[in-house]
Amino acid sequence: MPSPTTPGYALITGASSGIGAAIAREYARRGKPLVLVARRAERLEALAAELSAQAPCVVIAADLADPATPQRLFEETRARGLFVDTLVNNAGFGTPGRYLSADWKTHADFLQVLMTSVAQLTHLYLPAMEAAGRGRILNVASLAGLVPATAGHTLYGATKLWLIRFSETLNQECRTRGVHVTAVCPGMTYTEFHDVNGMRDKVNKLPKGLWLTSDQVAKLGVDAVEAGKPRIVTGKANNVIAALSKYLPNWLASALIGSRSKDFRDAD
């Protein structure tokens, strides 16, 4: 069992690019040892080489769409004698279009990566954190979980809302045991996410004031979980959008978001 002085690693899923890689860089700047997890081994190795002068890095190539992966990750880190006192659930992807435009295997993989693996990894790593009296769990959610639903990307906002509520509830359960749980809710962020899901041309038309860099999001998220904040929305504009969504009548908020949804959602 780890003691309060046992060196702790930050395990980051989806660490090969975007916000995940930025969070890895942020923790490395703070001297935090890292376990970098993603499907693309060559990208992880390149990131580990970049960061190794700042912090120890362990690379584990794994696909969280495989239901066996969370248990395998846990067993591998335990076999290596690594105490994971920080878990960053960041892995994810988008499924553009209507719900019926994708086959069930795609949706099943999406739910496995964005929900089931998050719940299972948390269930696996949390006991040792509580036993040591210290731990951090940072869940990368989205502004999409706080605004009215729009057509397209059907499961995305729903899973992010679940992740926010999961984080807030878990924080209530764990905060007296030395473990902080935070949902970071970015809006538009400069990553390759929109290139992968084919929405780059559309989202580039959005106002520049809505965008943050992945480095900005990473620092805000890490600062928030260290401070014990259960939720943080990144950026002033996104906080305004979240507040309007909360306090405006639902029909009006839905109408406002819906009128611009084609700029950031593919509903075809």
Score class of each variant (00 low, 15 high):
residue 167 S to N: 05
residue 158 A to H: 15
residue 109 D to F: 08
residue 141 A to P: 00
residue 154 T to G: 02
residue 11 L to P: 01
residue 89 N to L: 06
residue 45 E to W: 03
residue 253 A to F: 10
residue 85 D to E: 14
residue 111 L to P: 08
residue 179 V to N: 12
residue 237 A to R: 02
residue 79 A to R: 15
residue 152 G to D: 00
residue 109 D to G: 06
residue 110 F to Q: 04
residue 167 S to G: 04
residue 220 L to K: 14
residue 5 T to Y: 13
residue 254 S to M: 07
residue 213 T to V: 03
residue 76 E to S: 15
residue 157 G to Y: 09
residue 57 C to D: 06
residue 115 M to Q: 11
residue 45 E to D: 12
residue 71 Q to R: 14
residue 144 A to H: 13
residue 194 H to V: 04
residue 146 L to T: 06
residue 257 I to W: 05
residue 139 N to I: 00
residue 63 D to K: 08
residue 54 Q to A: 13
residue 58 V to T: 08
residue 182 T to D: 10
residue 198 G to Y: 06
residue 51 L to E: 06
residue 142 S to C: 11
residue 59 V to Y: 14
residue 168 E to I: 09
residue 34 L to A: 09
residue 179 V to Y: 15
residue 85 D to K: 15
residue 5 T to R: 10
residue 44 L to R: 00
residue 33 P to A: 08
residue 237 A to T: 03
residue 30 R to W: 05
residue 179 V to F: 14
residue 130 E to D: 08
residue 32 K to A: 07
residue 258 G to R: 10
residue 34 L to Y: 09
residue 64 L to E: 04
residue 228 G to R: 04
residue 265 R to A: 14
residue 10 A to G: 04
residue 109 D to H: 14
residue 47 L to H: 10
residue 82 L to N: 01
residue 181 V to Q: 12
residue 216 Q to P: 00
residue 225 V to H: 02
residue 58 V to A: 04
residue 182 T to H: 07
residue 234 T to V: 05
residue 24 A to N: 06
residue 70 P to F: 13
residue 207 P to F: 14
residue 35 V to Y: 10
residue 117 S to I: 00
residue 261 S to D: 05
residue 120 Q to C: 00
residue 203 V to R: 08
residue 202 K to F: 10
residue 202 K to T: 01
residue 131 A to Q: 15
residue 267 A to L: 05
residue 199 M to V: 00
residue 185 C to G: 13
residue 189 T to L: 09
residue 92 G to D: 01
residue 141 A to I: 01
residue 81 G to N: 05
residue 98 R to L: 12
residue 189 T to G: 03
residue 263 D to K: 02
residue 152 G to S: 06
residue 152 G to F: 09
residue 264 F to S: 02
residue 36 L to H: 14
residue 49 A to P: 03
residue 108 A to T: 04
residue 207 P to S: 09
residue 80 R to D: 11
residue 127 P to W: 11
residue 227 A to F: 09
residue 159 T to K: 00
residue 267 A to R: 06
residue 76 E to W: 12
residue 69 T to G: 02
residue 27 Y to P: 03
residue 152 G to H: 07
residue 234 T to L: 01
residue 248 L to A: 15
residue 234 T to A: 10
residue 207 P to T: 04
residue 63 D to I: 03
residue 124 L to R: 07
residue 187 G to T: 05
residue 148 P to H: 08
residue 243 A to L: 15
residue 251 W to Q: 14
residue 133 G to W: 14
residue 49 A to T: 06
residue 250 N to H: 14
residue 21 A to V: 11
residue 221 G to D: 04
residue 175 R to P: 01
residue 164 I to C: 03
residue 155 L to A: 13
residue 108 A to F: 08
residue 42 E to V: 01
residue 247 Y to N: 10
residue 67 P to Q: 11
residue 148 P to L: 09
residue 166 F to T: 04
residue 178 G to R: 02
residue 116 T to Q: 08
residue 224 A to E: 03
residue 20 G to Q: 11
residue 167 S to F: 12
residue 62 A to V: 04
residue 32 K to S: 08
residue 60 I to M: 13
residue 7 P to Y: 12
residue 217 V to W: 04
residue 11 L to H: 07
residue 215 D to F: 02
residue 144 A to C: 11
residue 192 E to K: 13
residue 124 L to E: 01
residue 263 D to M: 07
